[in-house]
């Protein structure tokens, strides 16, 4: 392993879903990074990685957004993303999308090199092996497809979660299987998506877990939304929230006191 970088500058790519739905994930990510000496910044120029355009066949806009993102983060040693999906877009698909752009292809490649999914960055680059956090519960970790297949994330979150006090981990039998989110897939083919997420939720419940964790907000909103609709008492959190010990209500729920106030 290469030596652990000293106080690297890290651009936090917060992702649209974290920005809009779950700021606590962004703060958790920043805390985890700062705890190991990273200098974290959130460049103003960041918006969306462009994946919705890319996967919808709108390559021109995907390329525009790719160039924008690369420019916005050009000064950082590393770019860290609390999502395998947006991370995979940058790492795998930016060089692919800009393959015929002689000026931007080398930049895209260099950019891909320095971009990491959050938990794998902590584990693989910063050498983190344990965290000082406490979480009471039994959790099933859901591998997002892009984390697993595009970002090489599998052992890292499990290793770090094992160091969380009070937390037990369960493996899902179909852990290689997609939860059915798939970006616009979940609204374009809702019946198929529902079938997939229902399978996933059943497996989570059968595993005996009371909590589901993942590194991607897309999967989490899908799974949490289905768990809530089915009335299952299983909480959903982003893995960063648990690792950072951030106190927040589970995804799609409000804190008990707030709930009482609105009730």
């Amino acid at each position: 392993m290469s030596p652990r970088p000293q106080n690297p500058s890290v651009g936090l790519f917060a992702t649209c879903l974290v920005d809009l739905f779950r700021p606590s994930v962004g703060f958790a990510a920043a805390k985890l990074l700062e705890d190991v000496g990273c200098r974290v910044a959130l460049p103003r120029g960041q918006t969306c990685c462009g994946q919705p355009a890319y996967n919808s066949g709108d390559k021109a806009n995907a390329k525009r957004l790719a160039r924008r993102t690369i420019a916005a983060f050009r000064h950082f040693d590393y770019v860290v993303v609390p999502s395998g999906s947006c991370g995979g877009m940058i790492k795998t698909h930016y060089p692919e999308a800009l393959a015929d752009d002689r000026k931007w292809l080398p930049r895209a490649r260099a950019f891909a090199e320095k971009t990491y999914e959050l938990v794998s960055f902590l584990h693989d680059v910063m050498g983190v092996r344990d965290v000082k956090a406490r979480f009471e519960g039994i959790a099933a970790y859901h591998d997002s497809c892009s984390s697993l297949r595009e970002m090489g994330v599998r052992v890292q979150p499990r290793a770090l979660l094992a160091s969380v006090t009070g937390l037990g981990l369960r493996e899902l039998p179909g852990r290689d299987a997609c939860c059915g989110f798939g970006g616009t897939f979940c609204v374009k083919y809702p019946e198929i998506s529902n079938h997939m997420v229902a399978d996933k939720c059943r497996e989570i419940a059968e595993s005996g877990a009371d909590t589901v964790l993942s590194g991607d907000m897309g999967c989490l909103m899908n799974i949490a939304g289905k768990l809530l609709r089915e009335g299952r008492a299983i909480r959903a959190y982003h893995v960063a929230e648990v690792l950072a010990g951030v106190e927040a209500a589970p995804i799609g729920q409000v804190k008990p006191e707030a709930e009482e106030a609105t009730a």
Binding site: A14, V18, D19, L20, F21, R22, P23, S24, V25, G26, F27, A30, L42, C186, V187, K188, P190, E191, S193, N194, V197, A198, M221, N222, A224, G225, K226, L228, R229, I251, G252
Partner: peptide, 24 residues
């Protein structure tokens, strides 16, 4: 426009403020 989602799932609501605006 989210009927495809909400027919089968609840939709987790945002918490009021974006991460960007809270950070800054």
């Amino acid at each position: 426009y989210g009927e495809g989602w909400t027919r089968f799932r609840d939709f987790p609501a945002p918490l009021g403020k974006t991460f960007q605006s809270q950070w800054r």
